[in-house]
Design a protein around this nucleic acid. Structure first.
Lengths: 215, 215
DNA sequence: TATAATTTTTAGCTTTGCCTAAATTTAATT
DNA sequence: AATTAAATTTAGGCAAAGCTAAAAATTATA
């Protein structure tokens, strides 16, 4: 499997986890910042290898084989992110691009030994679940902060957007995984939130609230 | 820099360290298990980028820029080998192929943090020196066991051949880096050696002796 | 030194993965 | 239902990195 094939599988996997309908050529092209015609080429190739179900003009879905392959790539990505943060002391906003490279290293033995070395973590530094060696995922019940109501209290357990900009913003506001968050007020005008994080009170926009997972 | 370019630079670097004359197209082709015509193509490309000095029909050498680039790849390869052996508990005969992949990961910050995490080792699991972040190498005085004389005693500090087969043979004979080796007898007929390793006496062929570094 | 053998390069072709532009299919709108 | 708009595919091309076969340069040998 080439890097490019792996990247397509991963993209289709991520898009599927959002909607769970067939994925359009354009959606893939946009996510991968490439052209629709390139996507069509690759879908034919992946279909040939039985990694996706592809019907011309109708979109794609992953086959069981393709889904497992995608999960193994995600597993590698997230385990490497754990390694970078926990062992090499990277911050959570720096690890994505490096893990994007490391996820393509081919060695089952390596990834399983890395898994053990890290203590078999079930979540990466952004709170996303890590598939086990068989592709099984432990799903954690969680809601977006934006869906919470006034006076509710929860713990931040994940982020939806994992961009460096967003993560740095959270660092600045001292919001981290494990932080306790209490909704003090919901502003109906702009849907912003007044929240308490630890001992501090701050105001966050709806966009921020829509990218924080709470439990 | 592409993976392929990096592999060519690394190969030229290794060939240079053996002979230190200009390297022939065929020598590179043989080492990389590719065709001479492919090598010619790449040499033009590397020359264009000022990474090698290339004169048609006359062979190549690395420029300063090329040599530094090659050393950085070697640095990455050997640091990853240390990681695999020391942290993930791989044996020294398993790490080459994986490090061959890992050496192409692009992130200076990563490799320097890995270096620190490992305690800034100066040698990899086969006793080969690890260039520092500036490309500097600490050379250790060492001789091939085959050049030793009867009754001499030394410590095994490296291996010339790093193939899995050779390393497994050494494991079987309980020869490791740090082992004390004493020459009991040199057999003139086939140039084999009778040696004492720790408390055991064994016979090794000249080929084996020609691939063990002793200090 | 002339010729043979070897090495190296050139020329032209293949595959992968991407692109643009044109054609086709599907979806939306009047 | 017909037409327009949007999405998708096809056709044809490009660059990287490899290959084979033929040409050219270098080296070895008679």
């Amino acid at each position: 499997m080439t890097f490019s094939e792996e990247n397509y599988l991963k993209t289709i996997y991520h898009l599927t986890s959002v909607s769970d309908t067939d994925i359009s050529t354009n959606a893939i092209a946009e996510k991968m910042e490439t052209k629709a015609s390139s996507v069509t080429d690759m879908l034919k190739k992946l279909s040939e290898k039985d990694l996706v179900n592809y019907v011309k003009y109708q979109g794609v879905s992953l086959t069981d084989k393709g889904k497992l392959a995608a999960k193994m790539i995600v597993r590698k990505h997230r385990l490497w992110e754990c390694f970078l943060v926990e062992k090499l002391d990277f911050s959570w906003d720096e690890v994505h691009d490096i893990a994007e490279q490391l996820e393509h290293i081919k060695s089952e033995k390596l990834i399983n030994k890395l898994d053990d070395f890290l203590g078999n973590p079930t979540e990466d530094p952004h709170g996303d679940p890590i598939p086990d060696a068989n592709g099984r995922i432990i799903k954690v019940e969680k809601q977006l902060l934006s869906e919470f109501e006034k006076n509710q209290i929860g713990i931040c357990v994940g982020v939806k957007d994992t961009s460096s900009d967003f993560l740095k913003y959270l660092d600045k506001q001292e919001i981290a995984l494990g932080s306790q968050i209490e909704i003090i007020e919901k502003e109906s005008f702009d849907s912003s939130f007044r929240i308490r994080v630890g001992s501090k009170e701050i105001t966050i926009s709806n966009k921020i609230a829509s990218n924080l997972y709470i439990k």
